[in-house]
Design a protein around this nucleic acid. Structure first.
Lengths: 218, 218
DNA sequence: GTAACGATGTATCGGGCCGATACATCGGGG
DNA sequence: CCCCGATGTATCGGCCCGATACATCGTTAC
């Protein structure tokens, strides 16, 4: 999961750890908080011994006047290998149930432009199915067990229901767009910062438009 | 984090592991997927050795004719101790930065009815602040780095921005409600899914455009 | 009758990932 | 001059997950 993300970034350009972490944070910011060094460095070593990446020793200029006072630990630049690129494609095209989990889906999505439309559709539909199940779970709890639950717990369920419902609709849009042939998502470079989302609550009878965040993460 | 959730559930009634897991899944379903046994049982043992919970052996059958072929492993019912209840209150009232993280916030929220209004407000405001920061992060990326990013990555950012914005508004409502004195969240339990109640969604005045990220009403 | 299956139930193991921490360099501001 | 924040690499303890194993019970299917 981290493997995929790291290989994906190094596929674009060589980088050292610190930079890698920063880019991961922005690229996957909507998915996971900020990957820890306690994960990053061990993963880098793992990828390295597996042969997917190598150190591209960024020799600090030719000025060998580096004061040998301390070991002068220079920054280590990693680059992806040919095998690594293959591995990346393999991981990316993996459409097993793991790819529909919150985090894994996000990582796959972040590199969508590197896979075929049909695989994209497979993943989007699998994810949609999963979120739909989640949504139905919330609905059942709200219908069947409403009176047995705490008021705050209920509010949490509504929150979750609304978030799931929104994600399903988001996925529907993306799926429709993929099918239409336009490769990149819609909503070009217009003014973002759009006011309250104009996507009004359509039908969905008992939904009661509630605010609902909590995309994934955790 | 699991500690808090488990203590909270056992505070309501004694339970065995399997049941605990089920209840956790529904109660925290909007927060985390479904806690694993690989977390649950070790945690139970930890809580037990710490003295927060005890085994309430549920041995219903005194008939010692239990075939010693296998150890006849009966189900183990756990109950909370007095110290456990204290510990629960301590954990619940913890308003440090950890309590604003996704998962931790959700667990706290799920047991909101057990803490004072002022602590509830402190947690809600802390959470709001955190999500606002998150939201601003997305906005900056979308404004400043839009052209340097992949179309799918951008869509992910918009998704995240929208979700964060929604959560902020959700929190605003909850905060306003807490301040108004009505203890439980709005949206009374029964009017929800049963009848096709045409109750229009309250209109949430004009807090959309410029959400001041700094209105610490402390 | 019994075999298969799914729900209930307890438990462990390897591994991924996080938070805290340590160490080291460098530029700038008080 | 010293502290601070950004840049940078790295480890350690610990939480938590997914996979797996084992055992019982009721129902359904052959």
């Amino acid at each position: 999961m981290l493997d995929l993300a790291i290989l994906g970034l190094l596929h674009e350009s060589p980088m050292h750890g610190y930079e890698l972490r920063k880019q991961l944070s922005t690229k996957l910011g909507a998915i996971r908080a900020a990957i820890s060094y306690g994960s990053l460095y061990p993963t880098l070593r793992r990828l390295q011994t597996a042969g997917w990446i190598t150190e591209a020793g960024e020799t600090p200029a030719d000025d060998a006047d580096v004061p040998p006072l301390t070991s002068r630990r220079g920054r280590v630049v990693y680059k992806i290998t040919a095998e690594g690129k293959e591995r990346f494609q393999d991981l990316l095209a993996q459409v097993g149930p793991e790819a529909y989990e919150d985090a894994a889906f996000g990582v796959h999505f972040a590199f969508f432009s590197r896979i075929d439309v049909d695989i994209r559709l497979r993943i989007l539909e699998g994810r949609r199915r999963k979120v739909e199940e989640r949504r139905e779970g919330f609905r059942e709890v709200l219908q069947r067990a409403a009176e047995r639950l705490d008021a705050y717990t209920l509010e949490l369920q509504r929150h979750g229901l609304d978030a799931a419902d929104r994600e399903v609709r988001w996925l529907e849009e993306l799926i429709a767009n993929e099918r239409s042939g336009r490769t990149p998502p819609p909503r070009g470079a217009e003014g973002e910062l759009r006011p309250p989302s104009p996507r009004a609550t359509d039908s969905t009878p008992p939904l009661t438009a509630r605010p609902g965040p909590d995309d994934s993460a955790e």
